[in-house]
Design a protein around this nucleic acid. Structure first.
Lengths: 213, 213
DNA sequence: ACAGCCACAGTTGTGCACAACTGTCTAGCT
DNA sequence: AGCTAGACAGTTGTGCACAACTGTGGCTGT
């Protein structure tokens, strides 16, 4: 990959993570000049990144005002969740990937990280692990457009959990999360990728229902 | 909407249509300078449009070479079709919209246009009608992310039909298309939005199977 | 005291000049 | 004749200066 495209990917992933981990809470004004200075470029390449984030619905640029992190529209997010549920199930239907030893090692590593999280619960560590685990779940399908679409929608809803957790039971959520990973490990050990996808769908659904109103 | 954002939308839709109608066949080199001159702007706003088209997978910019219209990767397109089938069915499941008199007038207008197409078949007119009809089909769901996702994927595959039609029977395709619209009119007249979505899904599937190999 | 207007600081949007890069063609050497 | 190196034309990428726009705060007139 060319260095320009590589830097674009890097900055995009970095800013997206900052937004989704609430380092930049909704309403934050992102200064093009400050970010350009931080990353050692001029405004031009940085604006390319912000434009992509705007297309993805994570920020909104207003002439004369600034580039603001979008706030979480719960009516829209409910629609995104509805769609994500079906896409999660599709992971097990569209070109499900065979369970390889490498993949088993991955899921076991996730279980280990989940156990560590349960031992010392932390919202940010939870969110980071959840993001990595979601990406792992998508790797179970060989359908690239499905992966990209599901990822895009995931990042739209990723902030909701972090904003809700203060009104939820963190330790309980960690235990449930670890339980999901262990169930998935069992399904994958049986070579049943579709079952793993359905477990994911079920837990997304239950997670939504547990959220405070 | 601000005039800058409005122009961005306009140019994006225009270039996307040119690509999907094969005015710019795969491999065409899009000159930033020439396009900027045509639309009466400088390269800067135009590059914003090309960047979005690149994110959507319709063009590819290469430093020192040019911005090329992507060629149609059939392996990837097969995956897109798989996903589109399921999304088409979801239109009838996620927030299906009630059938209003205005919507009935719309579908009747489409049937009329379909009859005119059958009377004098033309690939380009077919493609344009198909695009408008696809957009109408998406309006049957109130789920905005589903609409955007399905539209995005549609434009990825839109070029395939136009490249295949020389090896297919145009008159037959027009008749089948008109038949689909009439079936949909019947379903909507019965107030059955979900049935209309399933008809769409069935015809997308059959269209894929009719394509020459 | 209050309302309205104006100047100003701060931000994104635009245009332009130049840097970086690629493929081609030509001149020169072997 | 063939091959290599270098100049060159053409394209996208970057940086910078300025235009366009917005909100605010203060000033002025009533």
């Amino acid at each position: 990959m060319s260095s320009a495209a590589a830097r674009h990917q890097r900055l995009h992933a970095e800013l997206r993570q900052r937004i989704c981990l609430l380092d930049y809470p909704p309403g934050t004004k992102l200064s093009e000049e400050a970010l350009a200075a931080e990353f050692g470029t001029s405004r031009t390449p940085l604006r390319r990144v912000l434009a992509r984030l705007e297309d993805e619905g994570l920020v909104e640029s207003r002439h004369g005002i600034g580039t603001l992190v979008t706030d979480v529209d719960m009516a829209l997010m409910a629609q995104v969740y509805d769609l994500r549920l079906h896409l999660a199930a599709l992971v097990g239907q569209l070109d499900p990937q065979p369970v390889t030893p490498a993949r088993m090692a991955e899921i076991r590593a996730f279980v280990t990280r989940g156990e560590a999280l349960l031992a010392s619960p932390d919202p940010r560590v939870f969110a980071e692990l959840n993001s990595a685990y979601h990406d792992f779940g998508l790797s179970l399908t060989g359908n690239a457009p499905l992966r990209e679409t599901a990822a895009r929608l995931y990042y739209l809803t990723a902030r909701i959990w972090l904003t809700s957790i203060p009104r939820m039971d963190l330790a309980s959520e960690c235990a449930i999360f670890l339980g999901e990973m262990r169930e998935t490990e069992t399904a994958l050990a049986a070579g049943d990728t579709a079952a793993a996808a359905l477990i994911r769908r079920a837990h997304i659904s239950m997670s939504v229902h547990r959220m405070p109103r």
